[in-house]
Design a protein around this nucleic acid. Structure first.
Lengths: 135, 135
DNA sequence: CTTGACCTTCCTGTGACTGGAACCCTCATC
DNA sequence: GATGAGGGTTCCAGTCACAGGAAGGTCAAG
């Protein structure tokens, strides 16, 4: 299977698949003419990677998860540890965004949004007490 | 005022302040020895930038906001438009994170996390129906 | 005169790709 | 045999918003 087919079947761009090979996440065979040749196992890895990335795992997390996926003697605790760490990170980002949204919503609500120059948004950004939206 | 003082007073690292100059967000004076010299107006800009960045605005948004801040004949509608666009972006990111969290929380809850190899998390990533956590 | 804190510029690296140039391979068609 | 379409290959540059570090200039204090 060439990279184009692997791309179609995995849903990942060919560029991304080459990149994943470049950083050592998978190593497809090569045909006589130098083309990459993907086995079923490669395709499984690509699908796994696509889903893990869609869940927001970093590439390094994905690397660890792939290794655990391939390791029949793994402890699920290790997988869970990685996933929980990622959940913490997601929670942290959501809290950060929520804080931004809270402050910004206040400012936007206070702004008339007409063609006069008075603007509570600009005033807010220029003079906000420092505790707001820190992160 | 040298860059160190500007950094302390604005709360931004000196590296960041130099970068902002590099991309044309402000242009401090220079003393005879080549050191950057920050006026009050420069410091105001830096503080403005720090707060706008803390609210998650992109650098290009910041550039536009700074210009509007300096423009006495601005229409607040333009500022509001930028802020609302950013709020939309924040909402989009939060929704994306919430979807990831929902899927991942399910998987984590289903995983025993002991030293046996059975792992619903890995199974989930490997075989999830494609609709989950798309974004 | 040296020490140390400051400042300068320039180059590289980050994460996870994306775009593009320049080139090769294969097959079908004229 | 030339041509074109549609694959594939490598390598280089760019993204975003900085951070780290090297190599060197400047300045006040001891």
């Amino acid at each position: 299977m060439n990279i184009g087919d692997a791309a179609r079947l995995s849903g990942l761009p060919a560029k991304t698949i080459r990149y994943y090979e470049d950083i050592g996440l998978l190593t497809p065979l090569r045909t006589a003419n130098g083309y990459r040749s993907y086995r079923d196992s490669d395709l499984h890895k690509l699908t796994f990677l696509g889903r893990a990335r869609a869940l927001g795992f970093t590439i390094e997390d994905c690397r660890a998860l792939l290794a655990l996926y391939a390791d029949r003697s793994r402890a699920s605790a290790e997988v869970k540890r990685i996933a929980e760490g990622h959940l913490d990170e997601i929670a942290r980002k959501m809290a950060e965004l929520a804080a931004m949204r809270a402050t910004l919503t206040e400012l936007v609500d206070a702004c008339a949004g007409d063609n006069r120059p008075d603007c509570p948004i600009l005033q807010g950004i220029a003079g906000l007490p420092k505790a707001c939206a820190s992160g």
